[in-house]
Nucleic acid binder design. Structure first.
Lengths: 207, 207
DNA sequence: TGTACATCAGTGAACGCGCGTTCACTGATGTAC
DNA sequence: TGTACATCAGTGAACGCGCGTTCACTGATGTAC
């Protein structure tokens, strides 16, 4: 019998590199979260098993299970903001920038549906959102959107006069589409790109 | 010492009325769900405690815990559809009807945030949605919206030509606002009524 | 260069808990005769 | 009208499980002298 199991043996971190485990723990939590489709599966013991360590080892890095989830959410906000900013690189046309940003937002939600859900549709958030760090990240992401609307208006491509209001309108629509699409695959959705373009142009008041 | 505790003693159902417990179980599940803010708290034992029965008694009415949640979701769809239809009663103006329906939808989401979340933003749904009954209810609710857009267009109050597309756009926006608002109270929301009216008039293409 | 030792990165066993589920049962109530 | 009995609406005790968390520990590794 040929052994197929690749009994992943974890190599213990070298002295002074113990903090590396912290990142591995968060990565494992994300993995379990997205694979299982529910944050209930992200138990302290499941995370430990996934990383290949004993359960108590986690306590050197996180005070409790909730802190791991909070770290996942914080990482999510950083990742989303990065994705948004990256999507704008090299683009000059304000409408193109707006569309690119919105698409990047939806892509993030589609690629990390469970993390996304945790970020925006879970009361656990209360904990992280009170934490200034998570809040600032979320604000930064939203600011990208407000800037996009303002830019389009200033350069004569949109009739928007209330940038904040219109940015909120777009955010609300994007978020709605993101969560509904990932949870209601059976619904008769119209063409995705048409829907998104209509949402953006009407809510950003493109002319 | 004056006894304050109202040790709720449940009266056993009379013969032939055992099925009444089924409704009590669902009601208890909804109560726990909305009070706790998370469906994780809706355990079989917690529901039994809330109703005032022993845990095994539930098995006479539901095969397992998941079936209770499914019943909560089904009830939710019925409740939402009823609320939508009721909101239209006595209204004739198509734009008024559209607004009333949308407001009723948001009110439902605000009044039953956790049930709402379970209905639209949870993969547990997969089970219920495959079930024709739940599906039909959801379709009926959405049909109310499509009819609203069509009616407005036919009566010259909207420029919509693709009723389904525009109804989806409105649904997406309403859903987005509903979940974001209930989970992000700290966000600087614009005036609620202004936001909602703008979403509806732009997405329904009111003229 | 050699060695004693402090420190670091973890481990293994154990705990109490609430959970879903099973099993054999109980006692009130309606019904057949 | 009286009574034996079937049925119905539940109960109580028990199970095995995975969980979060604690505790005392181990063994490799870098460092001071």
């Amino acid at each position: 019998v040929i052994s197929v199991s690749t009994t992943e043996v974890r190599v213990r971190n070298r002295r002074g590199e113990g903090a590396r485990l912290k990142d591995e723990i968060v990565a494992a939590a994300v993995d379990i979260l997205e694979t299982s489709g529910s944050h209930e599966a992200v138990t302290l013991r499941a995370v430990a098993r996934h990383v290949g360590i004993s359960a108590p080892s986690i306590y050197a890095h996180f005070p409790d299970r909730e802190a791991i989830i909070a770290a996942v959410i914080r990482d999510g906000f950083v990742g989303l903001t990065d994705a948004l900013l990256e999507s704008l690189e090299g683009l000059d046309d304000p409408v193109e920038r707006l569309r690119a940003g919105c698409r990047a937002y939806l892509r993030y939600g589609q690629d990390h549906p469970q993390v996304y859900q945790l970020m925006f549709a879970n009361p656990t958030l209360a904990t992280v959102k009170t934490d200034p760090a998570g809040f600032v990240e979320g604000d930064e992401a939203f600011a990208v959107l407000v800037e996009g609307v303002r830019d389009a208006a200033v350069r004569g491509r949109s009739d928007s006069t209330d940038y904040h209001l219109d940015a909120v309108a777009i955010w609300v629509a994007l978020h709605g589409y993101s969560t509904l699409a990932s949870n209601n695959a059976g619904f008769p959705w119209p063409d995705r790109d048409v829907l998104i373009d209509e949402l953006i142009s009407r809510l950003a008041r493109l002319n």
